[in-house]
Computed example of a mutant assay.
Amino acid sequence: MAEDTHYFLAVPLPAEVKEMLAKWQEQLRKNLPYKQWPHPEDLHITLKFFGPVSDNKRKQLTKSLRDLEKVRGFTIETGGIGFFGNPKKPRVLWAGAERTEALLSLAELAEEVSAQAGFAKENRPYRPHITLAKRWAGDEDPNLRELEKEFTERKRIDIEGIALYKIHPGQTPKYEPFEEFKLLP
């Protein structure tokens, strides 16, 4: 039996934001020993991770996700960096995604319509971000506060749609927009 493909729902980023973040990754990579640095084309703001999904379940999910097309588009600010995990060995390096009411509502609605399609709701609070690197591999304590002061540029993005992404492990880039959902103007 073939393994089910993994999927997630996310906000795609415009090229100019990906370019800025790719430059940051290049600079940060010199000083931070992370094992994984996502390809710039793979950068996004996750709304909901689904994990393995069968074809039948994916069709049901896609139908439920069409409800998200009733949401109005909106604008957020991205930029700045931060970390998840122990400050001495931070497991994730991220760029910020503004926690607006509109983005939080979109994530909540994504949880609701996904639950209607049979997917478990996330127990943790939603923390919008763009993963720049993960899986810390260093022994030294990085000076996170200094790095946070260096990478402060911000860019506004218009969120006009979201996408269901298919994961292709072992490929670069590894995320493929599989189905797109346009938000209302």
Score class of each variant (00 low, 15 high):
Pro169Ala: 10
Glu160Met: 05
Glu146Leu: 15
Thr152Trp: 10
Thr152Asp: 07
Pro169Asn: 04
Glu146Thr: 14
Tyr175Met: 11
Leu164Thr: 01
Ile159Thr: 03
Pro185Ile: 13
Asp158Ala: 10
Glu179Asn: 02
Leu147Ala: 05
Glu140Met: 11
Leu144Glu: 05
Leu147Gln: 04
Leu144Trp: 04
Asp158Tyr: 04
Glu153Cys: 06
Pro185Arg: 15
Ile157Pro: 01
Asp158Trp: 07
Phe181Thr: 02
Asp139Val: 10
Ala163His: 01
Glu140Trp: 10
Glu153Thr: 14
Ile162Glu: 00
Ile167Gly: 03
Glu150Cys: 11
Pro169Phe: 10
His168Glu: 11
Leu144Asp: 04
Lys174Gln: 11
Ala163Phe: 00
Glu160Tyr: 03
Thr152Ala: 13
Ala137His: 09
Tyr175Phe: 14
Glu150Leu: 15
Glu160Asn: 06
Thr152Glu: 13
Leu144Ser: 03
Phe151Val: 14
Pro173Asp: 06
Gly161Ser: 11
His168Thr: 07
Gly161Glu: 05
Pro169Cys: 10
Glu180Arg: 08
Glu148Asn: 07
Lys174Tyr: 05
Arg154Met: 09
Leu147Phe: 12
Pro177Trp: 00
Phe178Tyr: 13
Leu164Ser: 03
Glu153Met: 10
Lys149Asn: 14
Phe181Asn: 02
Glu146Ile: 12
Glu180Thr: 13
Ile162Pro: 00
His168Tyr: 11
Pro177Cys: 03
Pro169Leu: 14
Phe181Cys: 07
Glu150Trp: 10
Leu164Gly: 01
Asp139Ile: 10
Glu150Ser: 15
Gln171Met: 10
Pro169Ile: 08
Asp158Pro: 02
Phe178Ser: 12
Ile162Thr: 01
Gly161Gln: 02
Gly170Val: 08
Gly170Pro: 04
Glu179Arg: 02
Ile162Trp: 00
Pro173Val: 12
Gly170Ile: 11
Ile162Val: 07
Lys174Asn: 06
Lys166Leu: 15
Leu164Phe: 01
Pro173Ser: 09
Arg145Trp: 08
Asp158Leu: 09
Gln171Lys: 14
Gly138Leu: 06
Arg154Asn: 09
Glu179Phe: 00
Ile159Tyr: 03
Gly138Trp: 02
Leu183Ser: 05
Gly161Pro: 01
Asp141Pro: 06
Asp141Phe: 12
Asp141Thr: 15
Asp141Val: 14
Thr172Ser: 09
Lys149Tyr: 11
His168Gly: 03
Ile157Val: 07
Lys166Gln: 12
Leu144Thr: 07
Glu148Asp: 09
Pro169Gln: 10
Leu147Met: 13
Gln171His: 11
Pro142Met: 07
Lys174Pro: 05
Ala163Gly: 00
Glu180Asp: 05
Phe178Asp: 12
Leu164Asn: 01
Asp141Ala: 13
Glu180Val: 09
Ile157Ala: 02
Glu140Asn: 09
Lys182Gly: 02
Arg154Ile: 14
Pro185His: 14
Glu180Phe: 04
Pro177Arg: 03
Phe151Thr: 13
Pro169Asp: 08
Asn143His: 12
Tyr175Val: 04
Glu153Phe: 09
Arg145Ala: 12
Ile167Asn: 08
Gln171Asn: 07
Lys155Asp: 04
Glu153Gly: 05
Glu179Pro: 01
Ala137Thr: 01
Glu180Gly: 04
Pro142Lys: 03
Gly170Gln: 08
Gly161Trp: 00
Arg156Lys: 14
Pro185Asn: 14
Pro185Glu: 15
Thr172Trp: 04
